[in-house]
Amino acid sequence: MSNPGVIAYDAGDVRVIDLPEPQPAADEAVVEIAFGGVCGSDLHYWRHGAAGQSVLREPMLLGHEVSGTVVAAASDGSGPGAGTRVTVHPLTPRGDGATPWPADRPNLAPASTYLGSAMHLPHTQGGFARRVALPSRMLHTVPDALPLARAVLAEPAAVAWHGLGRAGEVPGKRVAVIGSGPIGLLVVAVALHHGATEIVATDLEPAPRRIAESLGARTLDARDHEAIAALHADIVVESSGTVPGLAAAIAACRRGGTVVMLGLQRHGAVEAPLATAITRELNLVGSFRFGDEFDEVIAALADGSLAVDGIVTHVLPASRALEALEIAGDPSVSSKVLLAFDPAV
């Protein structure tokens, strides 16, 4: 049986090739992947051969948003058994022996690895293949009520969940979301789940604004600077990862409010209206990946309290991975794009 995988070789060079069967270590299970979600980092590796400071130096299997079924349990007896439906927490926290980090925040461990990341050499191979060997500790059971096509959203939803959590209490608050890409839309969904009284989402494109509205947000064109500045939101989540988006987030926040910097800004110096942040006594907080929220997110997806209908806009077979990357890279036509590794899908 073939084992197609999506491999990034260099900028503009992503290929679907037949991989050897995985050879698991004792603490690894073999997982038959059903779905993989295309993330912004996958797009960066495809377009630029790098995601920030993580530069491709050898071929790498893409993908860290995956769901599937265990077909061979770990031989050391750890983790779920064969036949268990799972989704994957792709982080391996690791210190560097020198840099301090809070032990209760594994996402901040300075030498961590992440599936489908070129940060380290050798690269950490990802999950975009029909069958992969994964550490059993990464595998989280998916409840029967949760389809695998929705369970694959657990990883990006956890990013949104963690980001909003960085702002503190949400019930009764007015929340603004700058940028309505897949992560921004998931922030809208999480804010609704957490009890925000009003949510306003911005974007340059009409299509993501329509999805945000279907989730329950009011929307603004990201170019309507006057309306954004008039929001006076209690919590603003910057999810675009752009310099104008950061400026808009600060402008949209009420005095004494909180701006969560969720979207990853470019490397190096970034211009921002810090005088405004100072005189308004804004709390500017960063948010990076997520920690122990993963099972909470899975449960909320399973019971429907985290409503994500409409965020997945395209599902393509893995054989059409290049087409999927093209579609995912055009926010005017897509939001979250999934690869289906099951030939029957």
Score class of each variant (00 low, 15 high):
residue 94 R to K: 13
residue 109 A to L: 14
residue 88 V to G: 00
residue 177 V to Q: 03
residue 101 W to T: 11
residue 120 H to W: 14
residue 185 L to K: 03
residue 128 F to P: 12
residue 156 P to C: 09
residue 124 T to P: 09
residue 158 A to L: 02
residue 154 A to Y: 05
residue 96 D to K: 12
residue 170 V to G: 05
residue 133 A to W: 14
residue 115 L to G: 12
residue 63 G to A: 08
residue 109 A to N: 12
residue 157 A to K: 06
residue 115 L to Q: 11
residue 163 G to Q: 04
residue 142 V to T: 08
residue 147 P to S: 01
residue 185 L to E: 01
residue 83 G to I: 07
residue 82 A to D: 11
residue 57 R to A: 14
residue 81 G to W: 00
residue 105 R to C: 09
residue 176 A to P: 12
residue 132 V to D: 02
residue 165 G to K: 09
residue 155 E to S: 10
residue 106 P to N: 07
residue 155 E to G: 12
residue 123 H to D: 07
residue 181 G to F: 01
residue 177 V to D: 03
residue 110 P to T: 10
residue 63 G to Y: 00
residue 98 A to V: 15
residue 180 S to T: 13
residue 130 R to S: 11
residue 107 N to V: 00
residue 113 T to L: 07
residue 90 P to L: 01
residue 132 V to E: 00
residue 170 V to N: 06
residue 124 T to W: 00
residue 111 A to P: 07
residue 163 G to D: 04
residue 99 T to Q: 10
residue 141 T to Q: 10
residue 58 E to V: 09
residue 152 V to H: 03
residue 110 P to V: 10
residue 57 R to S: 14
residue 70 V to Q: 03
residue 143 P to E: 04
residue 186 L to Y: 01
residue 189 A to Y: 03
residue 61 L to W: 00
residue 83 G to E: 06
residue 101 W to M: 08
residue 185 L to D: 04
residue 99 T to K: 12
residue 56 L to A: 10
residue 67 S to A: 15
residue 77 G to P: 08
residue 135 P to Q: 00
residue 97 G to K: 08
residue 120 H to V: 10
residue 73 A to G: 15
residue 166 R to A: 14
residue 56 L to G: 01
residue 103 A to E: 15
residue 166 R to M: 13
residue 101 W to A: 08
residue 130 R to A: 14
residue 147 P to D: 03
residue 108 L to W: 00
residue 149 A to P: 14
residue 72 A to M: 09
residue 131 R to W: 10
residue 105 R to H: 14
residue 77 G to V: 09
residue 153 L to K: 03
residue 167 A to L: 13
residue 84 T to C: 11
residue 175 V to C: 08
residue 118 A to K: 02
residue 98 A to D: 13
residue 72 A to N: 04
residue 78 S to H: 07
residue 162 H to S: 11
residue 65 E to A: 03
residue 93 P to R: 05
residue 134 L to D: 02
residue 187 V to L: 10
residue 97 G to I: 04
residue 90 P to H: 00
residue 54 S to H: 14
residue 170 V to F: 00
residue 163 G to N: 09
residue 105 R to W: 00
residue 130 R to D: 02
residue 127 G to S: 15
residue 86 V to I: 15
residue 145 A to W: 13
residue 67 S to K: 06
residue 94 R to I: 04
residue 147 P to K: 01
residue 124 T to V: 02
residue 103 A to C: 04
residue 166 R to W: 04
residue 153 L to G: 00
residue 125 Q to E: 07
residue 161 W to I: 06
residue 181 G to P: 04
residue 125 Q to A: 10
residue 59 P to E: 05
residue 67 S to H: 05
residue 143 P to M: 03
residue 186 L to H: 05
residue 95 G to M: 11
residue 80 P to R: 09
residue 58 E to A: 15
residue 66 V to W: 00
residue 171 P to L: 12
residue 107 N to T: 04
residue 139 L to T: 03
residue 69 T to P: 06
residue 123 H to N: 07
residue 119 M to W: 10
residue 156 P to A: 04
residue 160 A to V: 13
residue 95 G to D: 07
residue 172 G to D: 09
residue 147 P to N: 03
residue 155 E to M: 10
residue 74 A to R: 07
residue 143 P to I: 07
residue 68 G to F: 11
residue 189 A to T: 10
